[in-house]
Simulated assay, not measured.
Amino acid sequence: MFALIKPVQLIALSALSDDILLIHKRYALLELAQNTFSWDLTHLAPKVFELFERYSLDIEKRKFLLYYLAK
């Protein structure tokens, strides 16, 4: 059996500000999507599309992310 050398550190994304999340580049899209329970989509959509323009992400991943957010 394999043992972890270091303990796993969990981060509460909901405790981080938008500005902190947005500096995480491509990961910011996933972090914002995971934090949608506290977001109004009218607030989230401009940030998502801004990140789409700033960082390359293939069309299938964009579709999946938008589908996830719409659900």
Rank of each mutant, 00 (worst) to 15 (best):
A12V: 06
T36Q: 04
E31R: 05
F2Q: 12
M1R: 08
L10N: 08
D40A: 13
H43F: 03
K71A: 07
E60W: 09
E60Y: 08
H24S: 11
L41R: 13
I20V: 15
T36H: 03
H43Y: 03
Q9S: 09
V48L: 08
R62M: 11
K63E: 13
K25G: 09
L30H: 12
K71Y: 05
D19R: 06
D40Y: 05
T36C: 03
V8W: 02
L32A: 09
K63Y: 03
I5P: 05
P7F: 00
L29T: 07
Y27N: 14
S38H: 07
H43S: 10
S14D: 12
I59S: 14
S14M: 02
P7R: 11
K61I: 08
E50L: 08
Q9G: 04
I23T: 15
D19M: 04
K63D: 13
Q34N: 12
A15M: 00
L41A: 09
Y27F: 11
I11R: 00
H24C: 14
I59H: 09
F49I: 05
Y68M: 09
D18F: 00
L21R: 03
R62C: 06
A12C: 06
L29Q: 10
K61M: 09
L69G: 10
E60F: 10
A3I: 11
E60D: 13
E53C: 04
L32Y: 01
P7G: 05
E60Q: 13
F2K: 13
E50P: 02
K61P: 03
T36Y: 01
R26P: 06
H24N: 15
H24G: 06
L44M: 07
I23P: 02
E31P: 03
K25N: 12
I20C: 02
N35D: 15
L69I: 15
Y27M: 11
L69M: 11
D58K: 13
I23V: 15
L10G: 05
K63C: 08
A28S: 15
L66P: 02
